[in-house]
Design a protein around this nucleic acid. Sequence first.
RNA 1: GCGGGAGUGGCGGAAUGGUAUACGCAUCGGUCUUAAAAACCGAGGAGGAAACUCAUACGGGUUCGACUCCCGUCUCCCGCACCA
Length: 945
Amino acid sequence: MPDKYTPQEIEPKWQAQWAEDKLYRSLIDGSRPKHYALTMLPYPSGELHIGHWYAMAPSDARARYMRMRGYNVLFPMGFDAFGLPAENAAIRNRVHPKKWTYANVARMREQMRSMGTIFDWDREAVSSDPEYYRWTQWFFLKFYENGLAYRQRASVDFCPNCNTTLAREQVWGDDRHCERCGTPVIKKDLAQWFFKITNYAEELLNHPKDWPEKVKVMQTNWIGRSEGAHVTFHTERGDPLLIFTTRPDTLWGATFMVLAPEHPLVERVTTADQRAAVEAYIAQTQRQSEIDRTAADKDKTGVFTGGYAINPVNGERIPIWIADYVLMTYGSGAIMAVPAHDERDFAFARKLRLAVRVVIQPEGEMLDGATMSEPFLGDGVMVNSGHFNGTPTANNQAISRVIDWLEAQNMGKRAVNYRLRDWLISRQRYWGAPIPMLYCETCGIVPVPEDQLPVLLPDDVEFMPTGESPLKSHPAFLNTTCPQCGGKAQRETDTMDTFMCSSWYQLRYLSPHYDEAPFDPEEAAYWLPVDQYTGGIEHATMHLMYTRFFTKAMRDCGIYKDAAARRKPNQPPIDHEPMLALYNQGMILGEPMEGSYIAAFGEWQGETLITNKIVVMDEEAAKVMQEAENMVNNLISGLDDIARAFGETEASTPMTTAIGEIIKRNDNVMVIERLNGTEVTLELTEDAPIVDRAGNEIPIKALRYRLGVEKMSKSKGNVVAPDVLVAQYGADVVRGYLMFAFRWESGGPWDSQGIQGVVRWLNDVWNVVTDSPAVDGEADEKAIRALRRKTHQTIQRVGEGLETFSFNTAVAALMELKNALLAARKTPVCGTAAWAESIRTMLLLMAPITPHIAEELWQHIGEAYSIHNQAFPAFDAEIAKADEITLVVSVNGKLRARLQVPAGLPEAEAVALALASPDVQKFINGGAPKKVIYVAERGMLNLVF
RNA sequence: GCGGGAGUGGCGGAAUGGUAUACGCAUCGGUCUUAAAAACCGAGGAGGAAACUCAUACGGGUUCGACUCCCGUCUCCCGCACCA
């Protein structure tokens, strides 16, 4: 054993040993409770980055903790291997996506092994394997059979950069950009495949209780439930015109109707003399949506169609308008406009001078539609509403009564509307699971028979620089025969959204090579559902909605039947929710960096310094140089004053330098901040040398520019490579640091210095375990008790920390225990049984967090392999209890004294001690306290005078 | 606008209504060294010579006692947003 801690030696050694022994193989074992821990699988982008470590290593620590707690833990890993970057790489570098992807998978798998996790690699699943996507396709067929998949022509979101349609969930932000690449999306009219996630809108609102409030709220917002009524109006010509309203009690106040410009009825209601205006408006709306929706002012615009509708409740004839504030994608794409009681309708009516009629009159106020300056949204009583006049609106009673009446009259019915749209799963790209559907000349849309799955992606494809899917021009793939009539048929060339692959991967891990079904019902019955899921919040309304939908849809397709039948009656259902508990970790951001300090020499051209030489220096040198420059310039101007006195007219040129920190840089233009805070723009001439202080020429790329806290990206140069850290410090240090330096749920900027604290921690642990010679003398009983107490307090704190994802406090507790051991090492406590027990316990507590050093030192102290098969230490409250405590004495709520007293002191004695203390006496003028608050277990005494 | 979350030293961050600032980074002083780094020992919330006083975004409140609970304000982050 080396006498120094050398993770580079011990880590690979133990990783190999654990793999050889299949230490972390997870097999069904009915004698132990199971724990399915899952962390979101990565996309094989090429390199494992620090974000992967941040997501995986703490999850691993917790899974290990559960394992030590006696659970049979499954913690699998795989790859979400279909997707666009592979295809883009193919176009750019002429590498086949398959080759690129599998090379990355191999590389990242190796990188992950260096992390020292308990991943059971025998359960690995890769979504682009035919044995995997066969089942992705199979799910599509099942959903299709059960009416949950349909093809429809619709106006859909399309990313021009990714060259594919997107689901509504993948369009983000007010500028409606592509979630993946940030490009603003455009609308296209295409026939696409959808999944009926809207069927489950109501059910999806009912979240698993152990999910973060934030995710529940985001999903709830996304689903956007609102209650109201569907009411059928009719156009004057008799066409039914359905609207949704949350305020049926204001039906009598509808003074006009508004249709979305895309509404199918627009064509029919528009009159000849309005046609030109309507068409112009529609064209304008379409153009607007394509250019920039964000810039669209909130000013209402719209055009009268010339048509009229009849309000069913009062037979009134009201004009039909079109306006872009009514969206085709929400409700029925048509509204009744009640300007008196709706902000948007009010704004529209005022702008276009339309009638406003009050139908809810507030108490003690007389609203007048002609003069009111804002709509009335509060409660009141119904007026101008036929036999409903006088009905109070409070507590929704008017709404409820009106709906009852509408239903009785057959004019409308109670309805719930959702903002959620069906999931668009078609992608016009090659590297995905082909949608297993055919288009037959005679039979129409025909599903590929189950026994013909998988529909394989052909390997021999040509990638177009345009990004167009090569499947469209691949005759062998494209042309096939119809399984129904044997005639000619063409394959669907769209592939599936990769979120389909990840909607069920937790099931494939159970039996990645099972070929009778997507998963082995035996395994599913034992392991499902996932007990603890971890991953980033960015998937709140995408993956996390889709996978919940999948589970419910699978249930309704009967896919869980075999597995569910094997469950015991008292177990939670496996087909309601895929993941019982969820925890979102934060993100590691880039480390802020100072820019290089430079002195630039050149000629001024206006505000810009045309620079022909740059010298790089540190901040101190820059300050010195700046002072020197100031002095020289003062001197020059002083000399000029003298020269002028002698009749000289031309002033000398001051030094042409700019000194400061680079704050921006691109190619040959940079901005520096001078030491006095002003900014200067430099433009480098083509062959301007950049030299360091030793005179060596360096490339411009070596110049750093100031960087704030930002997301890591290669172009900013703030990426932290875990491989480099592992090589330098070892995996245990990296794991420990990631768990210690941040609150896991928050993440934060990387700090390259902070990692030293964890290096010191593990070095100290190594030393205290391997090099603690017994100290002569009789060990003090009190000191022994103190060490045992600290040890048991640490058991509690580490256990709690791992339990609640407070990894930072768990590590802090271990550092404290280490500090206590370092202090005790110099005393005769070192070498006692209590000492040995404390060391042993510390290693066990460290095992989930820093598994390699724990294993190595476990072996060193003579314990049997493997520490990772040990039970988590049991906490003994009796031992953890203090026998002497610091009694904190407050007088009138202000802290006045700290007294060392035995634990469990009776109140009377505590008060007597406190009153006797000079620190307390200073603040009391004799007399007895009016009130005494004594919290013995907290060591707290408050005396009120 | 609606909804959610957060605000504690120079920094990351600890604190079941009960010793605010644990643990760590950085900083400062010391030891060792020709020197530096590393390592080790020690000191750091602010003000004050001290006694003490003031400090958990700000203003109130509840309480013997508030970072923690309640009301209001400000700031920042996130989601949704003409949603009928």
